[in-house]
């Protein structure tokens, strides 16, 4: 079997590692979605993804298979995003953090009645087996859509915390916000993300979206 020359966006050396050009392209697309979600900057995302793939391929002698490659490349990408954010932290303005608007906060308030108790519709009930669902493409499609739908500033803080693994102290310092503000933002992100996953995946029989 011969592999055709890989797409020009992909380093040539990929084919030498026994990774098909197709697999690499699909991996690249996933990484790009990832990086864009965090950086909200297509150009920077593409640069970081390209650098990460190349760095991984340069040190590729210990790949055991494609799942190892994925895990490894994503680890490299994550570190590069962290570095990038640390370097770029000066450019984040406080106003970009308070600009998410109050509409969606009101919608979160509407999950509860005037006494602060869950309303019947949104009251959480047990989700179907998450481990099993995590093996399906459909689950991740819903998850990514839900992440995408977090308001930008909120999504950024949430991703720094849960995806990049920053401690909240460091997020506060980098973004120049108070600890309590940071916690409020994370709380709203979780409330919103949970609701979105509930609608899109957790309650299949009543799914309307």
């Amino acid at each position: 079997m011969q592999n055709p020359p890989p797409d020009s966006a992909v380093p040539l050396s990929a084919s030498m590692q026994g990774i098909s050009a197709e697999a690499l392209l699909s991996l690249r697309a996933d990484m790009l979605r990832f990086a864009q979600l965090q950086l909200r900057n297509t150009e920077a995302a593409e640069d970081l993804v390209q650098e990460s793939i190349e760095a991984a391929l340069r040190k590729s002698s210990s790949f055991a298979g494609q799942s190892t490659l994925k895990t490894w490349v994503f680890a490299i990408l994550r570190n590069r995003i962290i570095d990038h954010l640390r370097q770029a932290s000066r450019t984040v303005t406080l106003s970009s953090l308070v600009d998410d608007g109050e509409d969606w906060e009101e919608r979160l308030d509407a999950l509860f009645n005037e006494r602060g108790a869950w309303r019947d519709g949104p009251r959480p009930v047990a989700w179907p087996n998450p481990e099993e669902s995590m093996q399906t493409r459909q689950f991740w499609a819903v998850f990514e859509t839900c992440l995408d739908h977090l308001p930008p500033a909120t999504g950024k803080v949430f991703m720094m915390r849960e995806f990049l693994g920053f401690e909240s102290d460091e997020i506060c310092a980098q973004l120049g916000i108070t600890t309590s503000n940071c916690h409020v933002i994370l709380h709203r992100a979780r409330l919103k993300l949970r609701g979105c996953m509930d609608t899109g995946w957790g309650r299949p029989e009543g799914s309307t979206c």
Binding site: D30, V73, F74, P130, W140, E162, L164, R194
Partner: peptide
Amino acid sequence: EYRRQLKTLRQVMQAYAEGKAIA
């Protein structure tokens, strides 16, 4: 249930960060 689901979301997020979303 809400508390349990937050923990699930954190696990999902960890799997996502490890690139397991593309299973």
